[in-house]
Simulated assay, not measured.
Amino acid sequence: MTTDENPMGAEDGEGADSGPSGSSESTGALVARVLGFDVGDRRIGLAISDPLGYTAQPLFTLHRAGRRADLKSVARVLRKHGVTEAVVGNPLYMSGDQSPQAAKAQAFAEDLRTEFGITVHLWDERLTTTQAHRHLDDAGHAAMGRKGIIDQVAAVLILQSFLEARANERARS
Protein backbone atom coordinates (compact mmCIF):
# COMPACT_ATOMS: atom_id res chain seq x y z
CA MET A 1 0.00 0.00 0.00
CA THR A 2 1.17 3.48 -0.73
CA THR A 3 -0.57 6.64 0.28
CA ASP A 4 -0.52 10.23 -0.86
CA GLU A 5 -0.42 13.16 1.48
CA ASN A 6 -3.77 14.70 2.20
CA PRO A 7 -4.37 18.40 1.57
CA MET A 8 -4.14 19.09 5.30
CA GLY A 9 -0.57 17.77 5.44
CA ALA A 10 -1.18 14.54 7.39
CA GLU A 11 -0.19 11.27 5.77
CA ASP A 12 -1.83 7.86 6.15
CA GLY A 13 -4.17 9.23 8.80
CA GLU A 14 -1.28 10.39 11.00
CA GLY A 15 -1.86 13.70 12.71
CA ALA A 16 -5.61 13.33 12.43
CA ASP A 17 -7.72 14.48 15.37
CA SER A 18 -7.15 11.59 17.73
CA GLY A 19 -6.22 10.92 21.32
CA PRO A 20 -3.02 9.25 22.53
CA SER A 21 -4.37 5.76 21.91
CA GLY A 22 -5.47 6.68 18.39
CA SER A 23 -9.13 6.83 19.43
CA SER A 24 -10.92 10.13 19.34
CA GLU A 25 -12.42 11.48 22.51
CA SER A 26 -15.19 13.96 23.17
CA THR A 27 -15.93 14.97 26.74
CA GLY A 28 -13.98 11.94 27.93
CA ALA A 29 -16.07 9.32 26.11
CA LEU A 30 -14.92 7.38 23.08
CA VAL A 31 -16.90 8.31 20.00
CA ALA A 32 -17.29 6.06 16.97
CA ARG A 33 -16.39 7.87 13.78
CA VAL A 34 -17.69 7.44 10.25
CA LEU A 35 -15.29 6.64 7.41
CA GLY A 36 -16.05 7.79 3.85
CA PHE A 37 -14.77 6.09 0.69
CA ASP A 38 -14.44 7.22 -2.91
CA VAL A 39 -13.72 3.89 -4.62
CA GLY A 40 -11.89 3.78 -7.93
CA ASP A 41 -10.12 1.07 -9.88
CA ARG A 42 -6.62 2.32 -8.98
CA ARG A 43 -7.17 4.47 -5.88
CA ILE A 44 -9.54 4.80 -2.94
CA GLY A 45 -9.94 8.18 -1.29
CA LEU A 46 -10.67 8.07 2.44
CA ALA A 47 -12.21 10.72 4.66
CA ILE A 48 -13.19 10.59 8.33
CA SER A 49 -15.76 12.39 10.41
CA ASP A 50 -14.83 14.59 13.33
CA PRO A 51 -15.52 13.11 16.79
CA LEU A 52 -18.97 14.74 16.94
CA GLY A 53 -20.01 13.65 13.45
CA TYR A 54 -20.46 17.16 12.02
CA THR A 55 -17.62 17.50 9.52
CA ALA A 56 -15.54 15.34 7.23
CA GLN A 57 -11.76 15.63 6.87
CA PRO A 58 -9.47 14.01 4.29
CA LEU A 59 -7.51 11.06 5.59
CA PHE A 60 -5.38 9.62 2.77
CA THR A 61 -5.45 8.00 -0.67
CA LEU A 62 -5.03 4.25 -0.76
CA HIS A 63 -3.37 2.96 -3.91
CA ARG A 64 -5.09 -0.33 -4.71
CA ALA A 65 -2.95 -3.43 -4.34
CA GLY A 66 -5.56 -6.18 -4.54
CA ARG A 67 -8.62 -7.03 -2.47
CA ARG A 68 -6.79 -8.64 0.45
CA ALA A 69 -4.19 -5.86 0.78
CA ASP A 70 -6.84 -3.15 0.43
CA LEU A 71 -8.97 -4.67 3.19
CA LYS A 72 -5.92 -5.09 5.43
CA SER A 73 -5.17 -1.37 5.06
CA VAL A 74 -8.80 -0.50 5.76
CA ALA A 75 -8.77 -2.74 8.86
CA ARG A 76 -5.88 -0.70 10.30
CA VAL A 77 -7.81 2.54 9.78
CA LEU A 78 -10.98 1.11 11.33
CA ARG A 79 -9.07 0.01 14.44
CA LYS A 80 -6.98 3.16 14.75
CA HIS A 81 -9.95 5.51 14.59
CA GLY A 82 -12.65 3.40 16.26
CA VAL A 83 -14.79 3.38 13.11
CA THR A 84 -18.02 1.38 13.25
CA GLU A 85 -19.79 2.87 10.25
CA ALA A 86 -18.82 3.61 6.65
CA VAL A 87 -20.17 5.53 3.67
CA VAL A 88 -19.21 4.33 0.19
CA GLY A 89 -19.81 6.58 -2.80
CA ASN A 90 -22.19 4.98 -5.30
CA PRO A 91 -21.39 6.43 -8.75
CA LEU A 92 -24.70 6.15 -10.56
CA TYR A 93 -25.32 7.49 -14.04
CA MET A 94 -27.07 10.89 -14.19
CA SER A 95 -30.25 8.97 -15.12
CA GLY A 96 -30.02 7.12 -11.81
CA ASP A 97 -29.15 3.84 -13.49
CA GLN A 98 -26.30 1.73 -12.14
CA SER A 99 -22.93 2.24 -13.81
CA PRO A 100 -20.25 -0.46 -14.07
CA GLN A 101 -18.23 1.49 -11.46
CA ALA A 102 -21.28 1.51 -9.14
CA ALA A 103 -21.30 -2.29 -9.22
CA LYS A 104 -17.64 -2.25 -8.12
CA ALA A 105 -18.35 0.24 -5.33
CA GLN A 106 -21.27 -1.91 -4.16
CA ALA A 107 -19.04 -4.99 -4.11
CA PHE A 108 -16.49 -3.06 -2.03
CA ALA A 109 -19.27 -1.99 0.38
CA GLU A 110 -20.33 -5.62 0.73
CA ASP A 111 -16.70 -6.62 1.43
CA LEU A 112 -16.64 -4.04 4.26
CA ARG A 113 -19.88 -5.42 5.73
CA THR A 114 -18.75 -9.03 5.48
CA GLU A 115 -15.14 -8.60 6.63
CA PHE A 116 -15.68 -6.13 9.46
CA GLY A 117 -19.35 -6.38 10.44
CA ILE A 118 -19.81 -2.61 10.25
CA THR A 119 -22.80 -0.66 8.99
CA VAL A 120 -22.13 0.51 5.44
CA HIS A 121 -24.22 3.11 3.61
CA LEU A 122 -24.12 3.51 -0.16
CA TRP A 123 -24.33 7.21 -0.98
CA ASP A 124 -25.14 8.80 -4.34
CA GLU A 125 -21.94 10.46 -5.47
CA ARG A 126 -22.94 11.83 -8.85
CA LEU A 127 -20.74 14.80 -9.79
CA THR A 128 -18.51 14.62 -6.69
CA THR A 129 -15.33 14.40 -8.75
CA THR A 130 -16.42 17.50 -10.68
CA GLN A 131 -17.14 19.26 -7.37
CA ALA A 132 -13.78 18.12 -6.01
CA HIS A 133 -11.98 19.70 -9.00
CA ARG A 134 -13.93 22.94 -8.43
CA HIS A 135 -12.94 23.00 -4.75
CA LEU A 136 -9.29 22.53 -5.67
CA ASP A 137 -9.55 25.23 -8.36
CA ASP A 138 -11.09 27.63 -5.83
CA ALA A 139 -8.28 26.83 -3.38
CA GLY A 140 -5.70 27.66 -6.05
CA HIS A 141 -4.37 24.10 -6.25
CA ALA A 142 -2.63 23.52 -9.58
CA ALA A 143 -4.27 21.04 -11.93
CA MET A 144 -1.02 19.11 -12.12
CA GLY A 145 -0.48 16.86 -9.13
CA ARG A 146 -4.15 16.49 -8.23
CA LYS A 147 -4.17 12.76 -8.82
CA GLY A 148 -2.97 12.11 -5.27
CA ILE A 149 -5.62 14.17 -3.52
CA ILE A 150 -8.67 14.33 -5.79
CA ASP A 151 -9.98 11.03 -4.41
CA GLN A 152 -9.65 12.33 -0.84
CA VAL A 153 -11.55 15.50 -1.70
CA ALA A 154 -14.28 13.41 -3.36
CA ALA A 155 -14.43 11.18 -0.24
CA VAL A 156 -14.82 14.30 1.93
CA LEU A 157 -17.70 15.52 -0.26
CA ILE A 158 -19.41 12.10 -0.09
CA LEU A 159 -19.03 11.84 3.68
CA GLN A 160 -19.99 15.49 4.33
CA SER A 161 -23.16 15.08 2.27
CA PHE A 162 -24.05 11.97 4.26
CA LEU A 163 -23.37 13.67 7.61
CA GLU A 164 -25.49 16.69 6.66
CA ALA A 165 -28.39 14.51 5.48
CA ARG A 166 -28.20 12.54 8.75
CA ALA A 167 -28.21 15.76 10.81
CA ASN A 168 -31.20 17.09 8.83
CA GLU A 169 -33.07 13.82 9.38
CA ARG A 170 -32.39 13.95 13.13
CA ALA A 171 -33.54 17.58 13.26
CA ARG A 172 -36.84 16.64 11.59
CA SER A 173 -37.43 13.78 14.04
Rank of each mutant, 00 (worst) to 15 (best):
K72G: 13
V87S: 12
Q160Y: 04
A167M: 03
E125W: 11
T129C: 01
S18G: 11
V74N: 04
A69W: 00
A69T: 06
R126L: 10
L92K: 02
M94G: 10
T128G: 06
F116Q: 07
E85R: 13
P20W: 10
T119K: 07
I48Q: 01
L157F: 09
T130V: 15
G9L: 04
H63E: 12
S49N: 02
P7N: 04
R68N: 09
Q131A: 09
R126A: 10
G36S: 06
Y54S: 05
M94C: 12
G40K: 11
M144N: 15
P20Y: 08
M94V: 15
M8R: 14
A65T: 11
I158C: 07
I48K: 03
G15I: 07
V34Q: 13
L159C: 04
E14M: 13
L52H: 10
V83T: 09
G89P: 08
V87K: 06
H121A: 01
G40M: 09
L71K: 00
T2W: 15
T27S: 15
L62Y: 10
R79N: 12
S24A: 12
E85F: 06
H63Q: 05
E125G: 11
V83K: 14
T114H: 07
E169F: 00
L92H: 08
A105W: 10
D70S: 03
T119F: 04
V88Q: 08
R67E: 13
T129Q: 04
A171Q: 01
S23D: 11
K147V: 06
T130S: 01
D70H: 01
Q160H: 03
A105C: 02
L136Y: 00
A171K: 03
L62H: 15
A65G: 06
R68C: 01
E125L: 05
Q152Y: 02
D4H: 14
G19A: 03
G89C: 05
R76C: 09
S18K: 08
D38A: 09
I44W: 04
G66F: 00
G36I: 02
A10V: 08
R79C: 14
P51T: 04
T119I: 01
R79D: 13
R113K: 13
S24F: 07
I44E: 11
R67C: 04
A16L: 07
L46Q: 01
I48S: 00
D50I: 07
L92S: 02
G145R: 02
G15C: 09
L92W: 03
E85D: 02
G148L: 11
A86E: 15
T130F: 12
P20H: 11
L46R: 02
D50L: 05
G117L: 09
L159W: 06
T27C: 14
